[in-house]
Design a protein around this nucleic acid. Structure first.
Lengths: 200, 200
DNA sequence: GTCTATAAATGGATAGAC
DNA sequence: GTCTATCCATTTATAGAC
């Protein structure tokens, strides 16, 4: 438990900051950020408020750390997609990458997708999310120009619909559930490009 | 102002219950239900808490009325779909019907889709929503059996993906925005069945 | 690293006058 | 139908002992 390569748990026993963050994000997702009190969180962790505030500066800091994790993952996926050589590959790569981030970091992304902009931290995160959305819309428009995606549909609407489908995965996907994330990723890509209809 | 056919505004002037509900739902959607205080609401309406409580029994009652509106609309759309003569028409009708309810009652449905189950009213609404989802999944399965929808995809996953796409409309559609709701409805149906890919 | 105790503000809701 | 004033529970967060 004193760790090998990873210097995870230095010093005395008790709760680590990491545990507090994880439990906080979990609870925020179950009840909503605003509906979750610090007492709720200490109740679940089995410690007092003072002890909790020894690990984190504020309730909002827990949110901030989770949002950074979610946004960092999505931005990295977008950077990867932008390096692809063709418009088709760029679009496919961002769709696959986004689904992978959603399944890998479901709790953090869930928080991001539910933000309302009620504080500076929330509005800053929403601004980063909008930047991501704009770049993805540009990829969609590019795919339309090259004839890969139908053009009888506004690129913004198309992006919102497809990412609406992708993002909704956080509402039901669970890592320990029956759905395999790798299969899901390919299924989403197929439904996004080819739709539900049976091949005729 | 004393109304003709509709006995809308009986008695003295001032705010009507209807105004309070509408403003409340609007504010709940902007900030989240839990993040919205009764003071926020009285601030927007320009009256005091006591005056507001003359119109409604509680903050939660505003939520309840909105949820009934959303669920009633979705359940009616489902009843209409179930009366269609073929599986193909039943599936298409519930997709079109759901989109119509989302655009017609965007604020109310938005509240429904964001519920976390933090009170008895919320859990009751979520139970009704799950019942709706189960029936739609049965329609999807039926469409698969008849060869209308590809069967290399679990009916539950397919329903979640398509309704994830449909439901995401509440996040950006606005009645006074640039997107025509009738066109959007047909575009969603086309993307759901045929996907984004250009016809080859 | 955790505790008891408490501060200071805000939450939803009510009493009773006008 | 709206007001002032208030109740009481709960909120986030801190002080200081162990």
């Amino acid at each position: 438990m004193t760790a090998g390569a990873r210097p995870a748990r230095r010093g005395r026993p008790g709760h680590a900051r990491e545990d507090v963050i994880r439990a906080g994000v979990e609870l925020f997702n179950e009840q909503g950020y605003d509906a979750t009190s610090v007492s709720d969180l200490t109740g679940r962790l089995g410690l007092t408020k003072s002890a909790l505030y020894h690990h984190v500066d504020s309730k909002e800091q827990i949110l901030q750390i989770a949002l950074e994790d979610a946004l960092g993952g999505l931005e990295q996926a977008l950077a990867d997609a932008l390096q692809q050589p063709s418009a088709a590959e760029r679009l496919q790569t961002i769709i696959r990458g986004a689904v992978r981030v959603l399944t890998d970091r479901q709790p953090q992304v869930t928080l991001l997708l539910r933000l309302r902009g009620n504080s500076e931290i929330e509005t800053a995160a929403l601004a980063r999310r909008r930047r991501f959305d704009r770049t993805v819309t540009a990829l969609m428009r590019e795919a339309q120009s090259e004839g890969l995606v139908r053009s009888d549909l506004d690129a913004g609407v198309a992006t919102r619909l497809i990412f609406g489908m992708i993002n909704s995965v956080v509402e039901w996907y669970r890592p320990d559930g029956p759905v395999d994330p790798d299969l899901l990723r390919e299924e989403i890509l197929r439904v996004a490009l080819g739709g539900l209809a049976a091949r005729t």
